[in-house]
Computed example of a mutant assay.
Amino acid sequence: MDISGRHEESGEYLMVAAAVHASVDTTRLESVEGMGFATSRNPPAFEHAAEVVADAVAELPEPPEGPVVAERGEFYEEPELRVEQFLGPSFKYVESIAERETVQAAHHAAYAARKLFL
C-alpha cells in the first residue's frame, strides 16, 4: 500500500491511499489481483493515515491473504503492532524485493488516482 498527498496544497489536504492485492515470490511481483482506493481530507497524522489505508484495504475485491505491507514512512515509523491494530489484517514493513515492487505499484496507483481528484 501507499499514500499520496500528505502535504497541504491551496490550504487543503487530499490523501489518496492505494492498496494493491498481489501475488509475489521472494524476488518479484507475479500478478496484481486487485486494487482498492480511499481518500481523506484530514491533515496527515498517524491515525488519519491508518484510517485511509484501512478504508483502501477494505475496498479490495477480496481480503488479503497475507499481510498489508508498506514503507516505514507511511506510518511515521510506528511499530508494526500499533499499525496492525488500526488495519485489522496483519501488517509488516517492506522486507523483500517483491514487497518493494508491490509498494512501488501502489505508489504509482495512488499518485495517478490523486491526480484525477485535483
Rank of each mutant, 00 (worst) to 15 (best):
D2V: 01
R6Y: 03
R6D: 09
H7G: 04
E8W: 09
E8G: 00
E8T: 01
E9N: 01
G11T: 03
G11M: 06
L14M: 02
V16R: 07
A19I: 05
V20P: 01
H21L: 15
S23L: 10
T26D: 13
T26H: 12
T27G: 07
R28F: 00
R28D: 02
L29Y: 03
S31L: 00
S31D: 05
V32S: 02
V32L: 03
E33W: 00
G34T: 04
M35E: 04
A38S: 03
A38Y: 01
T39Y: 00
S40F: 01
N42I: 00
N42G: 08
N42C: 06
P43E: 03
P44W: 01
P44L: 02
A45N: 04
F46H: 08
H48L: 04
A50T: 07
A50P: 12
A58C: 03
A58G: 11
L60I: 10
L60A: 10
E62P: 06
E65N: 12
E65F: 04
P67L: 06
P67D: 13
V68P: 15
V68D: 13
V68T: 10
V68Q: 13
A70W: 08
E71P: 14
E71C: 11
R72E: 06
G73H: 01
E74N: 11
F75T: 11
Y76D: 15
E77Y: 08
E78G: 07
E78F: 00
E78R: 15
P79R: 08
E80D: 14
E80Y: 05
E80I: 08
L81N: 09
R82G: 02
V83F: 06
V83Y: 10
Q85T: 14
G88K: 12
P89V: 12
S90D: 15
F91L: 09
F91R: 10
F91D: 11
K92G: 08
K92F: 04
S96K: 13
I97C: 06
A98P: 10
R100M: 06
T102E: 00
Q104Y: 04
Q104F: 06
A106L: 05
A106V: 05
H107I: 02
H108Y: 06
A110S: 11
Y111D: 06
Y111Q: 14
Y111L: 15
A112C: 02
A112H: 07
A112N: 06
A113T: 11
A113I: 07
R114I: 08
R114G: 08
R114L: 11
R114W: 03
K115T: 13
L118V: 14
